[in-house]
Design a protein around this nucleic acid. Structure first.
Length: 137
DNA sequence: GCCAACGTTGGC
DNA sequence: GCCAACGTTGGC
């Protein structure tokens, strides 16, 4: 199983909306690196849901419910998306500030490539952040 | 194929 | 609201 991190601006699409809807296509990604990360996802992979711009924290855990398939919002047919569903909310959101201050998390793509909206997370990073968030890895 | 101009993302 | 990082576009 692999681990990932999905960024979303809460004003555009929030954790609460995902919980309310039960699942969602991760549409709108128009960046090759982010798109390639989604291509590599398999059903059952887990990801952190991160609020960017406002909140600036990991707020929940999601699971990949459908692998890479066409993004209906893309008229060109070139881009795809995965479908995710919420697994559990973070008991304690893990802020970007915490992550940046944590020596064990400096190598995270979130820290090193701040503009990448879908990024990989290592197992060590996953376990570490789950502990900070108060959820079972 | 290079690079300047421009647009977007996202932290501060 | 500003600006750094970075991707894309278009002229040459």
């Amino acid at each position: 199983m692999a681990y990932w991190l999905f960024k979303s601006e809460p004003s555009t699409y929030s954790w609460d909306q995902l919980v309310a809807e039960g699942q969602s296509g991760w549409d709108g990604v128009r960046n090759h690196q982010a798109s390639n990360n989604m291509r590599a996802m398999r059903i059952g992979d887990r990801g952190f849901f991160y609020h960017s711009n406002e909140g600036l924290a990991v707020v929940g855990v999601v699971e990949v419910a459908a692998e890479y398939h066409p993004d209906p919002t893309d008229a060109t047919g070139k881009w795809g998306m995965v479908t995710v569903r919420p697994v559990m909310a973070a008991k304690t959101p893990v802020t970007l500030k915490q992550i940046k201050a944590d020596p064990a998390l400096q190598t995270m793509a979130l820290v090193r490539q701040s503009r990448l909206s879908v990024s990989p997370v290592t197992e060590a990073e996953w376990v570490h952040i789950c502990h900070l968030a108060g959820v079972e890895p």
